[in-house]
């Protein structure tokens, strides 16, 4: 069965402000570090804009990343509905992230800046700090994963879709002709 909860990123307008509080809270809750480079969620910036696109693991139902891991370091725990990484087994081959990208997903796995090992969102054990502290109402923790893999798109594509939203055709609003 699908996991019941999902970290839903609402790529709407006005949407993400690019403040990166999510990155900071993620790095703090997992690594106790103040540098967002240690985060599992990443905010990409696109121009013109800047348009900000937060990318985080969407918990796809088919999990190409798990299948791609040669050492079984990356696994899905069906009892707690969370992805797990065993750092001692990770060989830093980055095949998981490549599989994510190759399957048309966002490239949602990050790598520890010093150790190099893979990092993936684990919902902070059920209380994702990024969603709790998102000031722009973009990150939500919802049980709505009917089609999570459809939401896991590359940042460039999401940025294009956001850009499509802000070139509307201007019409006059009138009560009568």
């Amino acid at each position: 069965m699908n996991n019941p909860m999902q970290l839903f990123v609402d790529h709407k307008l006005p949407g993400c402000s690019g403040c990166r509080i999510c990155e900071k809270m993620c790095a703090l809750s997992h690594e106790k570090k103040w540098n967002p480079a240690y985060s599992r969620i990443k905010v990409y910036q696109f121009y013109p804009g800047p348009i900000d696109v937060p990318i985080v693991c969407q918990y796809c139902e088919d999990r190409p990343c798990v299948a791609a891991c040669p050492t079984d370091a990356l696994t899905y725990d069906a009892s707690t509905f969370t992805m797990k990484i065993d750092e001692s087994l990770c060989t830093v081959c980055k095949a998981c992230n490549q599989a994510c990208i190759d399957n048309g997903r966002g490239g949602c796995i990050t790598f520890h800046p010093t150790k190099g090992t893979a990092q993936i969102c684990d919902f902070c054990g059920g209380d994702p700090q990024c969603a709790t502290y998102c000031p722009s109402n973009v990150l939500h923790f919802y049980p709505l994963s009917r089609f999570p893999k459809r939401l896991a798109k590359p940042p460039q594509l999401i940025a294009d879709r956001i850009a499509d939203q802000f070139y509307p055709v201007k019409k006059r609003i009138a009560q009568e002709e």
């Binding site: 402000s17 690019g18 722009s136 802000f166 070139y167």
Partner: peptide
């Protein structure tokens, strides 16, 4: 003109407004 908010690093009240000239 308004498109969205833009914030500086870790500011919970992002007050910059991104504008696009549409016409």
């Amino acid at each position: 003109l308004r498109v969205k908010n833009r914030g500086c690093y870790c500011c919970p009240t992002p007050c910059n407004q991104l504008a696009i000239i549409r016409e």
